[in-house]
């Protein structure tokens, strides 16, 4: 660790913060939309309707069966040729994280909903609640609690996946890091700092999730 200019990293903190901003922006927006997609397609996977089930299954299999990097490149470089319209790299980044995490979250949702004892749905229905009401008031609140650990996992994976978006020119953390290192020949210092940034984000998230879990566990 000697012979490196660690103090010099300070000068690049503002630029890394810009990168951090985009990393967080894309993570938050992507995961928010991803969660909605996951909820919708997760419910699709437990639906009786064959078409809804089929569409959900195809979506999940296609996304899980292809690398995020390929998805990012496809959406940024291939999709515009199909739709005849450029997609801004940040928007593309959000889309990639959303559809990618959405597929994994859908499976988390499906698993959690299916893990709730059958008797819960029957109890709700026997009281005259319809399917939707039973889902909303009885199944989901219980399922959601079981989703938290795997969701936390997925959030962390997706946050790390945002680093791949540098190839589609999203100005996020590692993108900024590479710019700096290329110009200032301080790869060790900058990449170490970038790694530390990611670690801080993911560790903070872990902590928040652990607190949330404990909070929800009181009953």
């Amino acid at each position: 660790m000697f012979g490196f200019n660690w103090a010099g990293v300070i000068d690049f903190i503002p630029q890394l913060m810009t990168g951090l901003y985009y990393t967080l922006l894309i993570s938050v927006l992507g995961l928010l939309i991803g969660f909605i997609l996951g909820a919708v397609f997760g419910m699709g996977r437990v639906a009786k309707n064959k078409i809804i089930y089929g569409i959900s299954t195809v979506y999940i299999e296609v996304i899980r069966g292809t690398p995020v990097l390929v998805q990012a490149i496809w959406i940024y470089f291939a999709l515009p040729l199909i739709i005849g319209m450029n997609i801004e790299s940040i928007l593309a980044g959000v889309i990639v994280i959303a559809i990618n995490s959405g597929a994994y979250i859908a499976e988390i949702v499906r698993g959690a909903v299916q893990s709730i004892e059958k008797g819960q749905m029957e109890a709700g229905r026997s009281l005259g609640l319809d399917h939707g009401q039973t889902m909303r008031y009885i199944i989901w609140p219980q399922a959601f609690k079981r989703m938290i650990p795997p969701l936390g996992n997925q959030f962390i994976i997706s946050i790390k996946d945002t680093s791949l978006l540098s190839v589609i020119l999203v100005p996020e953390l590692i993108f900024q890091g590479r710019l700096i290192a290329a110009n200032h020949f301080n790869a060790v210092e900058i990449y170490t700092t970038v790694a530390a940034f990611y670690l801080v984000i993911t560790l903070s998230l872990s902590l928040v999730l652990r607190l949330l879990e404990r909070r929800l566990d009181i009953q």
Binding site: E117, G119, Q120, E122, A123, G124, R125, S126, L127, G128, I138, Q142
Partner: peptide, 14 residues
């Protein structure tokens, strides 16, 4: 179903 109450072996409370 609203007019027909049901009690289960396993209670099935929420």
């Amino acid at each position: 179903r609203a007019e027909v109450g049901m009690v289960f072996q396993q209670f099935n409370l929420f």
